[in-house]
C-alpha cells in the first residue's frame, strides 16, 4: 500500500504464504550464509582461501545492493525501510498473536538485514585493508565485526524458526528451492 500506482498494477502476492524470494536474493543469501560459516568458524584465518571467500561475500553484498535498487519489488530497499518504531509495533503485535502478512522483510527482519550488511561491510573493508593495503591496525575491528556477524546470524536463524512456528508460514522453504506459482496450488 505504498503508492497509489502500486495498487493498480503489478502482481498481487497472496499474503498467506509469505514472500517468495527471487533467485538473486536466494543466491546472494546462501553464498553469504555459507561464507560466514566457512570464514567465521572453519577456514583458517590468513589463508588465501579466507581472502577468496571474503571477495565472494563482497561480490554478493554489491550485487544485493544493486538488486536493492533495480530488483524485484520485495527485494528493493524501499520495501523494507529500517524503522525502530515499526519493529517495536511488530514485536508487540507478535506477543498478542498477530502475524500481519508481509510483502518483504518484516520490520524486525529489516533491522536485522541492515545490521548484517553493515557488519559484513566492516568485516570486508578491514579485511581488504589488511590484506591488500597492509593496514594491520584494522585487525581488532575485523575481529569484533566478524563476531557481530556470527551473533547476528545466530539471531537470524532463531528469528526465522520462531516466526515460522508462530505464523505457520514456512520461511525456510521460501528461501530455499521452492518455486511456486502465485495462484492456488
Amino acid at each position: 500500500m505504498s503508492q497509489p500506482s502500486d495498487t493498480l498494477s503489478g502482481p498481487v502476492i497472496p499474503p498467506s504464504k509469505g514472500v517468495n524470494w527471487d533467485p538473486v536474493v536466494r543466491v546472494t543469501h546462501w553464498v553469504v550464509a555459507l561464507s560466514v560459516v566457512l570464514n567465521g568458524l572453519i577456514v583458517e584465518e590468513e589463508s588465501q582461501l579466507h581472502n577468496w571467500i571474503g571477495y565472494a561475500v563482497l561480490a554478493m553484498l554489491a550485487l544485493r545492493v544493486l538488486w536493492g535498487i533495480v530488483g524485484t519489488e520485495e527485494a528493493r530497499f524501499s520495501s523494507f525501510p529500517p524503522s525502530l518504531l515499526k519493529a517495536k509495533a511488530y514485536a508487540q503485535g507478535m506477543l498478542h498473536g498477530e502475524h500481519p502478512a508481509q510483502r518483504s522483510h518484516n520490520p524486525i527482519g529489516s533491522l536485522m538485514v541492515y545490521a548484517m550488511w553493515g557488519s559484513l561491510a566492516v568485516v570486508i573493508g578491514t579485511g581488504i585493508g589488511m590484506e591488500v593495503f597492509d593496514i594491520y591496525e584494522m585487525e581488532d575491528i575485523h575481529e569484533v565485526a566478524a563476531n557481530l556477524v556470527l551473533v547476528l546470524a545466530a539471531a537470524h536463524v532463531c528469528g526465522v524458526v520462531l516466526e515460522s512456528r508462530l505464523s505457520g508460514v514456512n520461511l525456510i522453504r521460501n528461501m530455499t528451492i521452492r518455486t511456486r506459482s502465485r495462484g492456488p496450488e
Binding site: 527471487d22 533467485p23 538473486v24 536466494r26 543466491v27 546472494t28 553464498v31 571477495y55 565472494a56 563482497l58 561480490a59 554478493m60 554489491a62 550485487l63
Partner: peptide
C-alpha cells in the same frame, strides 16, 4: 541467470 551474474560479480570484485 542469477547464478551467472553472481559469478560475474565475484570476477568483477
Amino acid at each position: 541467470l542469477a547464478a551467472l551474474v553472481a559469478v560475474q560479480a565475484v570476477c568483477a570484485v
